[in-house]
């Protein structure tokens, strides 16, 4: 049961984690993009924090949709519609009572929505390269699920380092995008890590 308190803790933890790492995200983006990912995500999630009481007062689905809309309106880069679409889609699928199977289904739909929004796919050096492996582990379930989710998110973000960017500003660099972690993959991994911390009761 994702009650109001859990919803609030979830939104605050994710938002604070992204905000705390904003400079790192900007540095990653400066290497292969336009250097605004950190600042954009900070602006978006500061708006989420500012509205966290209102957002978490709603049902889990509605609060996720609220996060999505806030990111769409406030981020100011392509990550706004991309993460906005992710949260809007998750919000459409998830209710207060939620089990792993439902999260898997919600994740499948959300990944499809992000693919459509970004006209992108797996292996193109984007946030999808984190979301998809995380979905794989969610599907497997089994022992130590939280720890494995965190590990796969981190390793998946690192796996974007040798990839060549096909979408987004980084694709302008072609071969030169190889050797840098994708900032969107990193921010996606940060969020997965924060969500797992809340689910384990560490945050």
């Amino acid at each position: 049961m994702i009650d109001r308190q859990t919803r609030k803790r979830l939104l605050k933890t994710v938002a604070n984690r992204v905000i705390a790492c904003a400079d790192e995200l900007t540095d990653l983006d400066r290497a292969i993009g336009d250097g605004d990912h950190g600042a954009n995500m900070r602006r978006g999630f500061e708006a989420v924090l500012a509205a966290v009481d209102d957002l978490s007062a709603k049902s889990f689905g509605e609060s996720l949709k609220g996060v999505g809309t806030t990111l769409v309106m406030k981020v100011g880069g392509a990550s706004g519609p991309l993460y906005g679409t992710l949260f809007l889609s998750l919000g459409k699928s998830l209710a207060d009572e939620v089990d792993r199977e439902q999260v898997v289904d919600a994740f499948v739909a959300a990944i499809e929505a992000v693919k459509a929004r970004g006209k992108s796919d797996i292996g193109q050096k984007t946030m999808l390269d984190v979301l998809y492996p995380v979905l794989g582990v969610l599907r497997e379930s089994g022992e130590d699920l939280p720890a494995r989710l965190k590990t796969v998110a981190r390793l998946a973000a690192e796996s974007t380092i040798p990839m060549k960017a096909i979408r987004g500003r980084a694709s302008f660099l072609g071969e030169r995008s190889i050797g840098h972690m994708d900032p969107g993959a990193r921010s996606a991994a940060l969020m997965v890590d924060a969500v797992v911390d809340v689910m384990e009761g560490f945050a």
């Binding site: 336009d34 600042a39 954009n40 309106m73 406030k74 100011g76």
Partner: peptide, 12 residues
């Protein structure tokens, strides 16, 4: 420009 007036775009 983004919502803060920097380089970027804003849905709003």
């Amino acid at each position: 420009g983004d919502p803060d007036g920097g380089l970027g775009t804003s849905v709003e």
